[in-house]
């Protein structure tokens, strides 16, 4: 069951990622982000990261995607401005480099994953000592607010600063 779900999600992710990158018109890229994020969310759920999955859906699918779409509408590119995007040579060379990167990383994954690790991966204990299920809001909340308090606050500061920066930058007269 989970194998099947994983395969479907993975195929969806890879396909939509390829389409995102290869579409000439960015609107299509943004549109194909939606299945990509859905696939990712599925995989996160399969990995027991249920809270992470919901955040992924909310932040990416709900916020970032919309912002991208919004910006595309805002700058309103005319088709003639979308010039011939790929030159064959650079397309080929960059595809080669990316392929090599994928191959090396796959080789690393293949070599680095021991049987022991796979067993641990497969036999993860789903329940925490105070009853929370691994990956749930509760099980993440304890370490996040106990041990990662300062990074969490700093992340909030970062987001505030980014918001202010975005507002300032996008004002009419810069």
């Amino acid at each position: 069951m989970s194998d099947l779900a994983f395969i479907v999600a993975a195929v969806v992710c890879v396909l939509s990622a390829g389409l995102i990158v290869s579409r000439k018109n960015p609107v299509y890229s943004v549109v194909f982000m939606l299945p990509f994020f859905l696939g990712m969310t599925t995989i996160f759920v399969l990995l027991n990261a249920t809270f992470l999955a919901s955040i992924q859906m909310i932040v990416y699918g709900g916020a970032i995607l919309v912002v991208f779409l919004f910006v595309i509408m805002l700058i309103n590119l005319r088709p003639e401005e979308l010039r011939e995007d790929f030159s064959m040579l650079s397309w080929f060379i960059s595809a080669l480099a990316a392929g090599l990167l994928a191959a090396t990383m796959a080789l690393f994954a293949n070599r680095g994953t021991t049987n022991d690790m796979e067993v641990k991966f497969a036999s993860a204990i789903a329940t925490r000592e105070h009853g929370a299920i691994f990956g749930s809001i509760e099980s993440i909340a304890y370490p996040l607010f106990e041990k990662q308090m300062i990074p969490f606050e700093l992340a909030s500061v970062l987001i505030v600063v980014a918001t202010l920066g975005a507002v300032l930058l996008s004002k009419k007269r810069v």
């Binding site: 194998d3 994983f6 990158v21 995989i43 990316a98 990167l101 990383m105 994954a109 796979e118």
Partner: peptide, 22 residues
């Protein structure tokens, strides 16, 4: 089956490479 650590890592590597290509 495929739903294991190795598969996840390889999938991540492929997606990363596609992003880098982009």
């Amino acid at each position: 089956g495929l739903m294991n650590l190795k598969g996840c890592l390889i999938l991540a590597g492929v997606i990363f490479s596609i992003g880098a290509w982009g």
